[in-house]
């Protein structure tokens, strides 16, 4: 079988969340001569777009999304070593995390998976992350984008403090900041001086694409 058939099977394996199959199909495609970049472009990105579409249409819920993400990473980790250094830089670098005091990271993980599936390099800070850690990450990693999430009302204050910290440390102009999560709104975004508010992973991806393209141009 040529790598084309394997790539189609890989798409299906990711969509149904079969991690073992996704990993061996990715290895098989490499062995058949497909390039790492080609496997990502022709199988993994389309697969995660299908998964994300099913999630938006409520055909998939969190459990289905999680096992598809696992299958995506099983294949992605198999092939990413084969990316050229230029390709490995991706479209842009994103520091992403849940703010201090909040442990709800489902939305953040969803956004991260969709961004990685679409060629962004994500530095995942995790959840309940102290403000100082975000400031250090922005200073040291020099990301293009910073994405902050919270699901709870009390921790919206941590989001504001993180933005304030960026200003105080003179880092605010070095990075574009997006905020999201249940209680967040466009009004709140304006109030704390972030650049973008998004309600779902599709909006986050569209903004990330626009922002890095704008930078290049």
């Amino acid at each position: 079988m040529g790598s084309g058939g394997l790539l189609q099977q890989l798409v299906e394996a990711v969509v149904v969340g079969n991690g073992a199959a996704a990993e061996s199909l990715a290895a098989g495609a490499l062995a058949e001569g497909a390039g790492a970049y080609q496997i990502i472009e022709e199988a993994l990105i389309p697969a995660m777009n299908i998964v994300s579409g099913k999630y938006d249409r409520k055909e998939y819920y969190l459990p289905q999304m999680l096992i598809s993400s696992d299958a995506f990473y099983a294949a992605f980790n198999k092939v990413k070593g084969g990316l050229s250094s230029e390709q490995a830089k991706g479209k842009g670098k994103v520091v992403i995390g849940v703010v201090e005091g909040d442990i709800h990271d489902i939305g953040k993980n969803l956004v991260k998976t969709v961004l990685e599936a679409n060629g962004f390099i994500c530095v995942d800070m995790g959840r309940d992350v102290p403000i100082e850690d975000y400031l250090d990450a922005v200073a040291e990693q020099t990301p293009d984008l910073l994405m902050l999430s919270t699901l709870m009302t009390p921790t919206m204050l941590s989001m504001k403090r993180t933005l304030d910290g960026l200003v105080e440390d003179g880092l605010r102009d070095s990075v574009m900041v997006a905020v999201g999560g249940g209680p967040i709104s466009e009004e709140f975004r304006k109030k704390i001086g972030a650049d973008f508010y998004g309600d779902n992973e599709k909006m986050a991806l569209a903004w990330a694409n626009e922002t890095v393209n704008g930078k290049v141009a």
Partner: peptide, 13 residues
Amino acid sequence: EKGSRKGLDIQPS
């Protein structure tokens, strides 16, 4: 003792 106020305004997790 979650958060900067040591659990005053955040439930135990």
